[in-house]
Simulated assay, not measured.
Amino acid sequence: MTSTLSASNRIDPQRFLTMAEVAAELRVSRRTIERHVREGTIRAIRLGRLRRVPASEIVRLRASAGSG
Rank of each mutant, 00 (worst) to 15 (best):
L61H: 05
T32F: 06
S56F: 04
R27C: 01
I58N: 07
I11W: 07
A7Q: 12
L47Y: 05
F16S: 08
T4G: 15
I45Q: 09
R38N: 10
G66V: 04
V22K: 00
G68S: 11
R27V: 02
V37K: 03
E39G: 06
I11H: 10
R27F: 00
V37C: 05
P54G: 03
Q14E: 15
I42P: 06
E21Y: 03
S3R: 09
V59S: 02
T18V: 01
G40Q: 02
H36V: 01
G68A: 10
A7K: 14
L17V: 05
V37H: 02
F16W: 11
I11L: 13
V37T: 01
P54C: 00
R35K: 08
V22Q: 01
R46D: 01
V53W: 02
E57P: 02
R51V: 12
S67V: 14
L5K: 03
I45D: 09
I11F: 07
P13A: 06
L50M: 15
R52P: 05
I11M: 08
R62T: 03
V59C: 00
L26A: 00
L47E: 14
R51S: 12
R62K: 04
H36G: 03
R10T: 13
R51K: 13
R52K: 09
A55N: 13
A24R: 13
L26E: 02
I45H: 09
S8T: 13
S29F: 08
G40W: 05
I33K: 02
E21W: 01
L61F: 04
S6K: 12
E21L: 04
M1L: 10
S6H: 10
L50I: 14
I11Y: 05
T4N: 14
I42G: 04
A20L: 12
R31E: 12
R52M: 05
A55Q: 11
V53T: 03
V59R: 02
E34V: 14
I45A: 12
L26G: 00
A24T: 11
G48A: 00
R49D: 15
A24S: 13
R30M: 04
R35V: 10
R15T: 11
Q14I: 14
M19I: 15
R52F: 05
N9V: 08
T41P: 09
T32H: 06
V28R: 13
A65M: 07
S67F: 13
F16T: 12
E25S: 09
S64F: 13
A44S: 03
M1C: 11
Q14T: 15
Q14H: 14
R46E: 06
I58A: 02
V59L: 00
